[in-house]
Every structure is written in C-alpha cells, then in structure tokens.
Design a protein around this nucleic acid. Sequence first.
RNA 1: UGGGCGGUCGACUAAUGGUAGGUCAAGUGCCUUUGGAGCACUUUGUCUAGGUUCGAAUCCUAGCCGCCCAGCCA
Length: 562
Amino acid sequence: MVNPEPATVSATNFIRDIISEDLRNGKYQHVQTRFPPEPNGYLHIGHAKAICLDFGLAREFGGRTNLRFDDTNPEKEETEYVDSIQEDVRWLGFEWDGLYYASDYFDQLYEWAVQLIRAGKAYVDDLTADEVRQRRGTLTEPGQESPYRNRGLEENVDLFERMKQGEFPNGARSLRAKIDMASPNMNMRDPVMYRIVHASHHRTGNRWCIYPTYDWAHGQSDSLERVTHSMCTLEFADHQPLYKWFIEQLRIFPSQQIEFDRLNLTYTLLSKRKLLQLVREGHVSGWDDPRMPTISGIRRRGYPPQAIRAFCAAIGAGRTNGTTDFAMLEHFVREDLNRRASRVMAVLRPLKLVIDNYPEGQVEEMDAINNPEDAAAGSRRVPFSRVLYIENDDFREAPPKGYYRLSPGREVRLRYGYFVTCTSVVKDASGSVVEVHCTYDPATRGGNAPDGRKVKATIHWVSAAHAIAGEVRLYDKLFTKPDPSEVEEGREFTANLNPESLAVLDGCRLEPSLAGAQPGARYQFERLGYFCVDLDSTPGALVFNRTVALKDTWAKVEKKSH
RNA sequence: UGGGCGGUCGACUAAUGGUAGGUCAAGUGCCUUUGGAGCACUUUGUCUAGGUUCGAAUCCUAGCCGCCCAGCCA
C-alpha cells in the first residue's frame, strides 16, 4: 500500500495500560469514552490530541465513543461552534456513536439536585458571588460556612423551585453542595451546582433560567452515558474527589476519570480565549486563517488529517507538562505529503530565461514524473519553449561559495528539460537582472547528458507562453517567540505576533496542468514546498497556500555563513 | 504557605527491579534529474543526596525544581 495508515495512538501509553488492566480484571466489561467539548470556540490541535485518545483508544478496544457538547453556559455557547466541531471531528477521521448534549440531561440533573437537597447534601445560598468568594478562605485557611447553609429542607426545596421558576434575578441565589468548607481541596468547599442566568440557551431556549455548573453536570453526564474511561486534562485532577462524591451520594454508575497532559506547541497559542481575541481583533482573517492552530485553520493550510493523527500518536500521552517542538508537527505533515502529493512546477518569483539557440516558435512536451515516491501516480507532459521563467533565487550574478545554481558561464539542468549554460544577462536601469540568456544542449533532452557529464544543480521552470498566473500565500509562524505568551511587563501576547507571518505573492507562474485545480487539492511545488488550493480560488484565478516548505539545506548553509 | 500532580538526551516518549531504546531537532557522510526524499553514522539523558538490593530510571527516606487549584468559566 502506498499510504499505510499510521497507528491512531502510540504503541503504548499509560491510559492504554489502565484500560487493558480494567478489562482484564473485570472492573469494566466494555469501553465507552466520550469527547466533551464546550461549543464556545473552534477546535484546535490540542483538541486533536484528546480526540485521537478518546476515539482511538475506544476503537482499539472495540468500544464506543460519544460526542457530547458540554453546553452548560448559555452566555458563551453558539450553534456555529456546534457545527464546526462536528465537521472537524469528522475531518480528523472519526465518527461518534452517540451525539449528546449536557443540556439533554437538564431535567435529570434538576431531579438529582432536589434529591440531594432532600438528603441534606445541598442548599440554596442567598449569598452573592462576591460574598461567596470572601468566605471561601484561602489555600492555607479554611473557608467560613454560609449563614444559609443550615436552613430547612422544605425551605431549600421551595427556594430552589422558585429559582427555577424565575423569581430571582441573576446571581441572587445559588444551589451549593454541602460538603466541607475546611477541605484543603478548594473544589470541596461547598461548590456551586446551579446559578441563575436569565439567558437563552442555544438548544433549550428560554425553558431554563438556572443552569448547572460544569462540575455538577460533567460527572453525571458521563455516568448517564455509562462512560467507563473519562479522559480529560490534568487540571481536572483536583475535581475528581468532587465527582466521586456526587456519584456516591446519588449511587449512580461510576465512571473513571483519567487525566493526561495538555498539548503545548512551540510558537503556538492554544488558549481558546486568546485565539478568540486574535479573531475578534482582526490579527487573523478568521478561525480558519491558515496560520491558526485550529483544526479549520490547519485544514485550510493543507495539513492532512492522517498527518495530524500520526503526530498525535507520536507525542503520546502522559502526565508531565511539556512543550512539543513545532518542527515535530511539520515533520509528520511533510512525511505524509511526500508520499501523497503530486509534483508540479511553479515559479513564485519569476525571472525570464531566454534560450538563444532554441528554435523560435518551437514547443516540446516534456515528460515529467508526478511523484517519484509513488510509481502509480504516473507522469504528465509539460510544455517547453524558448522563453521560460525560472525562480529568481535560482540565479546569482555573483554566486557565493557553495551556490550550485545558475550564474554566468555555469551549466545547470532544467528539470525534465535540457542542460542550459548562462551566457549573459540583461539589467534594468537600477542594475538588477531582469533577463537571463543561455544556450541549451539539444543532446540533453529530458535532462540526461549522453556524454555522462554532470551538473551540480537542477532547477524548475515554466514556459512563459504556456504558464498560468496564480497567487501564492506564504505562511510563516504566527509568533516570533517559542513561547508566545512570554511578554514584558504591561505588554500583551499580541506583541509577539510575527509581522512576516503572511507574504502574498502575486504574479506567480504555474505549469498549465494546474488549470482547473480544485480547492483543497494538495501539491508539491518542486524544490519549494507543499501547497494547497485555497477556498478563495476562482476558476480563472488560482490561489495557493503554502502548507509547509521543503527542508532547505542551502538556506541553512547560507544562513550559517552570515 | 494547604492540597493535588509531575521531573529520563535540546524536544516528545519507551523501558512496569535485569543491556537506558525510538521519534523530532542538530551534525557528518553516501546517494540523487527536487540542495527534496532515502540510506548510514554521530553527539547529548534517568533532578539531588542518602538507603534497600547481587542488581535501581523503577522501591524507600529527605530535599530541590516545575505545573494546577481560592469563577455562580469549562
């Protein structure tokens, strides 16, 4: 097979070990997982790691995975996000077994809350959020109990019912679990279960004006779905005792939570809040700007889902906080595209090349291999003629040491064309080279010299008369610092934005086979990088995004000599 | 400072008391009709100090360092 599907998850990780053991010793008979995003933003590469774990591990053990939207906060959540999340999960290559919303469980949650009240385990508090905060205590000092903590059962039930009926304004009262204000675990200091929010919910409309907090809804939602292994990120480890407390009080199905480390990437921000800020303030064109680490952004950038999965498998999952090199992600993108992308020739910064001894008006169709990594990809024909465009970078009037490409008197190979030798240049008034003249050796057709002589460089080209025009967008890192959140006092992370993260090249020249290329199609522009057709393309005006550049040894050498 | 969770090459990750291995990055060479790809090789690591053991990255003790928690966000 040309493109073997890489493993969805790494050969081993501690979560797999736990699941295997749970199945072996009978703690659970099956595997049920869930991916529980809040629909308040777009999914990003960090979520991809969680998705690969949630869906990948369940798939591996013959289990099931639900997609559940944790929509407990009507003020932040929108249908737009629900739609994008589903699209992104599918694009990554996964399909859910059940599609649920935490809001599906609002009635059950309410009923259970009443049950806890009647059991003396929850109470309505009249304190405001500020007052609750003042009494919470600190990391080292216990909190104080609310004066409303011990009011009567019936009064609690009545008040809670009236909260639901909408008798009180936002924030006037809350329902709190009655646990332990002196607990060293802040989550156990009578956490809020319900707050009053008179806001319309994207699914339940105006039916409710009290909404469960995440802590109250999450564990019970898992339990209702019979989730066996509930994976989440490390910061929720402190909440586990609370979830267990609820489950024990209610005597419901015990889901097991397993925390793993969040993905961090160099030069990348993975905070929904900051990503939203980039969008709102117009630093990027939208959630799907190809520079964004969102799934929709990297999709538009041209990253293949297989590459994302291979990357997630490679980084694994553990419990140590770290930061993965962005280069690791790019490696998997290149590795995937190298095997699958068709090669074409495109000249981004055109320089005219005239072959003086090539017959005027003659056109030859040269055979070009579509993908040297995949014989099945076949070949195509590329028109060759007397006037070509070559890459501006591929000619130097005064070549530095180690530069192999074209320069006066030097012979190079035109890929799939002929050997040409530079004879002269034409300059404009300012002294820059605008045209290069050469002669070609007719015996080298296709790029082979019968006499066996070698050239040190092969450069790409397009025939001036046959090339089609196109726009190419060159993307670079969005931030200049490995840790974009590292800023001087009083500055914002936006100060680290890379002003050169986008360079738009107009007037690029593409080989004619690219005419009609469809949005999303991926190619390798030989010697330059991987590019994909952007959504902004129209039939007559192609736009390409640079997905990732090819590794460039020469650039490295040149940089070192400076 | 109370509680929770962690510390293995520069980065990510294996080794589950028995040879510290893989991937990325970096470097060197080979090869090449992409300065791509591929191939070969190289450099660098168990936080510290004690202890248990024939044997410790792994177990114990004590330190040190890092991350998380004081939203009616998730």
